[in-house]
């Protein structure tokens, strides 16, 4: 085991009956890393997590953890924690008993158990709620119990499946910070699933973007946000002007547009180019467009332009002079800002 592969998935293929949900997935995760699994609904995030936890049998490939092949190790012997989206607290047990459940199964008793449970509750700020039943707690509190219940087990990896999606916006932010704190304090390796790119960007050391059971891109939040390598990731992180390239020419609804001299050096080999709306320059530039739509977004204003490229979305500061529907405008897609895409799908 090298440092870079505390948890590694090797050519992991997962299926429900004959339908393959995850195909040939390779992923190496460092000890103590916080990984976000990002992707659209149905791309196989939950499936992957369940396989790591041992709840779903592996069709082929391997799961290795801390130097051991755990592909066939049963779920209750893996030292992998999973926090469910629904929290999955035991309704008949008190908060205290929920947190102590796994420790008791380990054979822990008496003061050792009591100390552990109490410090677990304390770390999530629920010391005063030890005797409540889960039904008597708010969503955020239930979430904390679930977190404490997993964490007292000192798992090698903690998996979280959309941990924040059931919470309202404010609580979400609070729990986000909480998760980060617990992760930093304990140094536990964490993988969390999310739909929400902002959450992934804010929390993760590295982001894994999945699509239809495959990894589309792995990278730091900066990589994913600024340097998407495929049109899919670009679209997912908010590049709204995405165009395929063919021999350095941009394919548009109006045919091929020559961009030679307009591309930075590495780009001509790219399969496509992408710009965020904010990267589009209005008022100067070589291209012609007509305003088709406009909307005010507080600090900024968005324009939808009709152009030889097809529709272009631009976002400029709200303080700039406004343009009316039907106005003709020049604009630029600045080459130095473009994200070159190596795959266009």
């Amino acid at each position: 085991m090298s440092d870079a592969s505390y948890l590694s998935l090797e050519k992991l293929t997962l299926a429900y009956g004959d339908s393959v949900a995850v195909a040939n997935l390779d992923l190496n995760i460092r000890k103590g890393e916080l990984i976000a699994l990002l992707g659209p609904s149905g791309c196989g995030k939950t499936t992957t997590m369940r396989a790591i936890a041992g709840l779903l049998p592996v069709k082929s490939g391997h799961v290795r953890l801390d130097g051991a092949d755990i592909t066939r190790v049963p779920a209750n012997k893996r030292a992998v924690g999973l926090m469910f989206q629904s929290y999955a607290l035991f309704p008949h047990l008190s908060v205290y008993e929920n947190v102590g459940f796994g420790l008791k199964l380990k054979g822990m008793r008496g003061t050792e158990l009591d100390t552990k449970v109490k410090s677990g509750l304390k770390s999530v700020g629920l010391s005063d709620f030890a005797n409540r039943k889960p039904a008597e707690l708010s969503g955020g509190q239930q979430q904390r119990v679930a977190l404490a219940r997993s964490m007292v087990m000192e798992p090698k990896v903690l998996l979280l499946d959309e941990p924040l999606s059931n919470l309202d916006a404010r609580l979400r932010l609070e729990m986000r910070t909480e998760l980060q704190r617990v992760q930093k304090e304990t140094g536990v390796t964490m993988i969390f699933v999310t739909h929400d790119q902002a959450e992934a960007l804010a929390l993760a050391d590295r982001i894994v973007v999945m699509k239809s059971g495959k990894i589309e891109q792995i990278g730091s939040p900066e990589d994913i946000y600024n340097r998407p390598t495929s049109s899919f990731v670009a679209d997912f992180v908010g590049f709204e002007n995405i165009f395929p390239l063919e021999n350095g020419k941009m394919k548009t609804s109006a045919g091929l547009i020559d961009l030679s001299g307009h591309l930075s050096s590495g780009a001509p080999s790219a399969a496509g180019l992408a710009w965020r709306p904010r990267m589009v320059t209005l008022g100067t530039g070589p291209f012609q467009g007509t305003v088709r739509g406009t909307s005010f977004a507080g600090d900024s204003r968005e324009y939808l332009l009709d152009s030889a490229f097809g529709p272009i979305k631009a976002e400029v500061e709200a303080s700039r002079p406004t343009h009316a529907l039907g106005d003709a405008l020049v604009f630029d897609l600045p080459a130095e800002k473009a994200a070159p895409l190596s795959r266009f799908v």
Binding site: A75, N76, L89, F90, G102, L105, R149, M153
Partner: peptide
């Protein structure tokens, strides 16, 4: 009764 509590129990070490 939600069935995920059984999985939660298994992950906490129960058969």
């Amino acid at each position: 009764l939600r069935s995920d509590i059984e999985e939660a129990a298994v992950l906490l070490g129960s058969s």
